[in-house]
Design a binder for these strands. Structure first.
Lengths: 237, 237
DNA sequence: CGGCCAGATTGGTCTATGCCAATCTTGTGC
DNA sequence: GCACAAGATTGGCATAGACCAATCTGGCCG
């Protein structure tokens, strides 16, 4: 017996098989591969499962398993998703799920902590799906402290959160802090982002400050790790 | 039957079980949990597997499954691992695996592309394990274009790559671009970082530029997604 | 020709089971 | 008491098979 697990050996063999295939190519079925390799379907599934998590394959129940495409690179500087996505050359869009004007209560402990808000303080919460070229890339929840009259209509009109804050409400974000960590997809992400249960996501949270160092934005996004790449460029002081 | 997969239901039940437990607490065995839940061990393993990938549990063969600790946050500005890690309050260290003075050949296609080097051009490659408080956090491979005489000794002496480049070789990095994406652990990461096969990692690549915009550093790191959090802070122009 | 339905195909989940490898425990012999 | 070896425990890997759900295909019928 080899030193490596079988499923990992097959993973590498499948990787070779698909290396030169164009994106979207159908590969043999799990049952076929199991027969070819002389192993069980369970083992093949584990191998394919990792390749799916890495974005090299995609599975569709009832249809088959296909090769995947290249990653989309996302440069995030002092701009927003909408603003900088356009500059890179893919078409960004958003689907608004929910806009609410809220007041801090017991169920907003996390938000309140990040924005330094006392119980009862007003804030706006926006939940959106982020799309690139029509494909869902991530799920983003943005919170802005304060009471913003007519925010709903303004945002739907402009499309860009940052532009709306700047143009319509005079809120200027001059410094941001981005945090990135890994996260595994749960039911909500599966449903909205069309990823597999348990596939790794990038959890990106952003805190935006104004000139006075006050927190004027707090956003959490869960982006597909296999379709997304976070880039930050930093200059010397 | 519920709409959610069983393994996901059990994952949540286990999550509740361990919510209030201190880090390092032993939880029941997989076989016990399978009996308690009235399900198979395979299903319990899948549930536990995801919790492990998220860093909430750790498994040790022959010993048992234990609750995990909180994440370490890593702020990365225009500094290096060594330099900024100290500021946060945990003890960073490195274990040098390999230092080589190389020349670009066919096996260095990726490195050559990122550093804009022609075949035959010299560069130094350093492979290190990054530790925080003695625990392995990541695996980093740094490449620096050029022929750096006595680099090996200087680096081992100083410990910090950036300090060595700056103090001993007059190389100043004034701008960096960091990229972050997800990655799954393979055999090498399993061996060196003590993570599970297939667990999600943060793959962080950094390109460093000097005043002239020339690439003077290219680094790739694979950091434990469950122990690591990447933070970038950006100011307005 | 177009629309619809039945069956085949394919991935998704789960079970039951076996053996291996790392670790821990226990007891024996010195 | 201590060291070491044997056995028990625990997670790691793999198998074979079953059933479900989504999808696709092909043929029938209007």
């Amino acid at each position: 017996m080899s030193e490596l697990p079988k499923y990992y050996v097959y993973k590498m063999r499948i990787l070779e098989m698909i290396a030169d295939l164009p994106p979207g190519t159908l590969i043999p079925t799990e049952r076929t591969l199991a027969l070819d390799f002389g192993t069980s379907r369970t083992t093949v599934r584990k191998a394919i499962g990792e390749l799916v998590a890495e974005g090299k394959l995609t599975r569709t129940q009832g249809s088959g398993t296909y090769t995947g495409g290249p990653k989309i690179t996302h440069v995030r500087q002092l701009t927003s998703f909408t603003e900088d996505a356009q500059a890179i050359g893919y078409t960004p869009s958003s689907e608004i799920l929910e806009i609410e004007q809220l007041r801090v209560d017991g169920s907003h402990a996390v938000e309140a902590a990040h924005m330094h808000l006392a119980p009862g303080a007003p804030f706006v919460r926006v939940r959106r799906i982020r799309l690139g070229n029509g494909e869902p890339l991530g799920l983003e929840t943005a919170c802005i402290p304060g009471e913003l009259a007519g925010f709903d209509e303004r945002l739907r009109e402009r499309g860009s959160l940052y532009a709306t804050l700047r143009e319509d409400f005079g809120i200027r974000i001059t410094e941001v802090e981005d945090g990135v960590e890994t996260y595994l997809a749960g039911p909500e992400e599966v449903r909205l982002l069309k990823v597999e249960m348990g596939s790794p996501l990038l959890r990106i949270d952003r805190t935006g400050f104004d000139d006075d160092g006050k927190v004027v934005e707090w956003t959490v996004g869960r982006f597909c790790g296999d379709r997304f790449r976070f880039v930050a460029r930093t200059r010397a002081a």
